[in-house]
């Protein structure tokens, strides 16, 4: 892997709007070498649009994309491995040929590409099935083959759009190990996912996207520290819940998912107020509690806190 500047990918002020609505309006982040950067956002946040703009597949309306320290150009794409959200392989192809084809598209000779394909397939435990046709592989194995096709040419940067979707826990774990090995060799990874647990387990940094805008970029510990302290409470007595929270120095925020009169609320409390104190306060005011779930400190709590702090995203 040749030496590369610290920031393999840098996106500044990216905007891409679509006629029917949606897209991204202010995206910025960078992907350093030797690190896994999680790209987090709900469906429709603009993750795939950003990745497509980063690779020049979509032309942005505004903003800059810098790949390997230089303005975007098509030849730089050869140094990138890409797993798109819309992915698939030709069913009739053999696993090693499908991977090898992508290697050759990225400039490898046939011999190099097939050798690399065989090596990667061995590594994920599919060596014995390298000559099987894609149609005969399970969905998870076919997806692993697709991920390997993105890595076959030993890229410096991997852009992976939801690489874990459709994989069982064992396959997810194997893939995460593969990514960890890639990082250890100095490669940079941008890894979009819905799975905040997976992001927490492998990512060094995270970029959070909400309603087409970057709402956070930084280390995982920094992001986790932004998670509020409190709980998700399901109740029909919003007034009583609000009064109890206010008495303890906190406040309540509605959470999507109301069921008739029963609604979900996020209770945000000062850090020194423990959950038993909140439960006692609710009990004293005879507030009916249908469910009580402490907010775990971590990316999930931080993400929801940050996303719902944005006026636009709240409206959305």
């Amino acid at each position: 892997m040749p030496s590369a500047p610290a920031d393999l990918l840098k996106i500044t002020g990216l905007a891409k709007r679509f006629r029917g609505g949606g897209g991204v309006s202010d995206v910025f982040f960078s992907v350093p070498a030797g690190a896994v950067t999680g790209f987090i956002g709900v469906n429709g946040a603009g993750k795939s649009t950003t990745l497509r703009c980063a690779l020049g597949l979509l032309k942005p309306d505004a903003g800059q994309v810098s790949l390997f320290g230089a303005p975007f150009d098509l030849t730089a794409r050869r140094r990138v491995g890409f797993l798109p959200e819309e992915r698939g392989l030709f069913a009739h192809e053999r696993a090693r040929d499908a991977i090898g084809f992508h290697g050759r598209l990225k400039g490898m000779t046939r011999k190099e590409a097939l050798a690399s394909a065989d090596r990667l397939l061995e590594r994920v435990g599919l060596g014995a099935r390298k000559n099987d046709r894609i149609a005969s592989l399970s969905k998870g194995n076919a997806q692993r083959v697709q991920v390997l096709a993105a890595m076959v040419h030993d890229p410096e940067l991997l852009l992976l759009d939801e690489p874990l979707s459709g994989l069982d826990p064992i396959a997810q774990s194997e893939l995460l190990s593969l990514l960890a090995a890639f990082r250890a060799r100095g490669g940079g990874i941008l890894f979009s996912t819905h799975s905040l647990a997976a992001a927490e387990s492998i990512c060094d940094r995270v970029v959070m996207l909400s309603a087409g805008r970057t709402i956070f970029e930084g280390g995982v510990p920094d992001a986790s520290a932004l998670a509020p302290h409190g709980a998700i409470v399901v109740t029909a007595d919003a007034e009583g819940l609000g009064t109890a929270a206010a008495m303890l120095g906190g406040h309540i925020v509605p959470v999507a998912g109301a069921m008739g009169e029963v609604a979900r609320w996020r209770v945000v409390l000062p850090r020194h107020i423990t959950h038993p104190v909140l439960i006692r306060a609710l009990s004293e005011r005879r507030v009916p509690i249908f469910a009580f779930e402490p907010i775990k400190p971590g990316l999930e709590g931080a993400f929801w806190h940050l996303a719902q702090s944005l006026p636009e995203s709240r409206a959305a």
């Binding site: 597949l57 990138v80 798109p84 990225k106």
Partner: peptide, 17 residues
């Protein structure tokens, strides 16, 4: 149409014009 059916086009577009 096969590119569409197998959803393979985006991978191809990332490597070829």
């Amino acid at each position: 149409v096969r590119e569409r059916a197998t959803r393979a086009l985006e991978s191809l577009l990332a490597a070829a014009a």
